[in-house]
């Protein structure tokens, strides 16, 4: 049977904040939305890629060498791809009549009059499903991120994925500066060394878990590379079974082994009972001290509790074997 519900006081508090906010902003229109289109859609017509080439030769030259360009301009597979530029940018007749008109065409860059939802709908028309199936209401989508914030199909800037920067990691680090600095800590996985990328663990288009992981949980993600930790073991260590993040910081740590803090302090955060796990340890117990203690040397608690992720030994109930 599942446990109790959240206290009602939290609900009242949240409601109060929202009502006050509603009163403060009532009457203000949401920013970033387009004014009603004064021209009905029927007046927009397709002009063909040859017309686009008159003014946008550089862009089309870059585009022609990209994946989309090779398909749309040389071997379209359907009527939509055969539209060329207008397959994504929509009918361009109004744009040709008045290039300065803000809503004359669907634009994907900064300052565009096109709502982000409309930009994304253009991309998802072909690229829906697959890795993007959880895009709606994902963290990035909820924060009004456009596909063109991370991707630029107008040229081949990256080796993979038509990204806005040269690599996946550079693209993510454009916004996620904290993770960029975390990976430069002493203990880190080989992301900066080019051996893994952000998308090995995360799906930026939406996932099944809070940090948009590729799998259902943190542990499942870690086990894709660290299958030896999956077990299941004869004797499990509860914080390991719950989440690897109980002890590890996946983006980087200044402690060894990506630990969130040094041993034995890490272990003592849970193991507060009487006994050797919680004996006071002082300078004298360092390796250079008068009474060296294994708990302050080398692998600390793991000098003895070697199978800390779980033991498959019949005498491993305390992870010694």
């Amino acid at each position: 049977m599942l446990g109790e519900a959240a206290p009602a006081g939290n609900i009242v508090g949240r409601l109060a904040i929202f009502v006050i906010a509603l009163l403060a902003i009532s009457g203000n229109p949401a920013v970033g939305q387009t004014a009603p289109d004064s021209n009905p859609p029927e007046s927009r017509t397709y002009v063909g890629p040859a017309v686009c080439d008159d003014c946008h030769q550089t862009a089309i030259d870059n585009f022609a060498h990209s994946i989309h360009g090779e398909l749309f301009l040389k071997r379209p597979r359907n009527d939509s791809e055969a539209l060329g530029c207008e397959a994504c940018h929509g009918p361009a007749s109004l744009h040709v009549e008045d290039p300065a008109r803000a809503d004359g065409i669907i634009r994907f860059t900064h300052g565009s009059a096109t709502p982000v939802a409309k930009m994304n709908a253009q991309c998802l028309g072909c690229h829906g499903g697959g890795e993007h199936i959880n895009w709606q209401s994902s963290v990035h989508e909820s924060e009004d991120l456009a596909c063109s914030d991370c991707h630029n199909p107008m040229a081949t800037l990256s080796a993979r994925g038509l990204l806005a920067r040269e690599t996946v990691n550079d693209t993510c680090f454009s916004c996620h500066r904290e993770q960029r600095s975390e990976f430069r800590r002493r203990s880190h996985m080989p992301l900066l060394e080019g051996k893994i990328s952000c998308t090995d663990c995360h799906n930026p288009h939406g996932g099944l878990s809070e940090p948009m992981l590729r799998t259902t949980s943190v542990n499942e993600t870690c086990f894709t590379c660290h299958a030896e930790k999956r077990g299941p073991f004869l004797f499990e260590h509860a914080p390991v079974t719950e989440s690897c993040l109980n002890c590890h910081a996946p983006h980087g740590s200044n402690h060894e082994k990506l630990l969130i803090t040094a041993r034995p302090v890490l272990c003592q955060q849970c193991h507060t009972m009487i006994g050797h796990m919680n004996d006071p340890l002082v300078r004298a117990q360092l390796a250079s001290g008068a009474f060296p203690d294994a708990r302050l040397i080398g692998r600390s608690c793991q000098n003895c509790h070697v199978a800390i992720h779980g033991s498959n030994h019949p005498s491993g109930a305390k992870f010694h074997r």
Partner: peptide
Amino acid sequence: LSLASAVPRTPWGLAYALP
């Protein structure tokens, strides 16, 4: 990327890499 814009930017305002 384009002669129409010296430094094209993403909707959020970050500059695209140059091709």
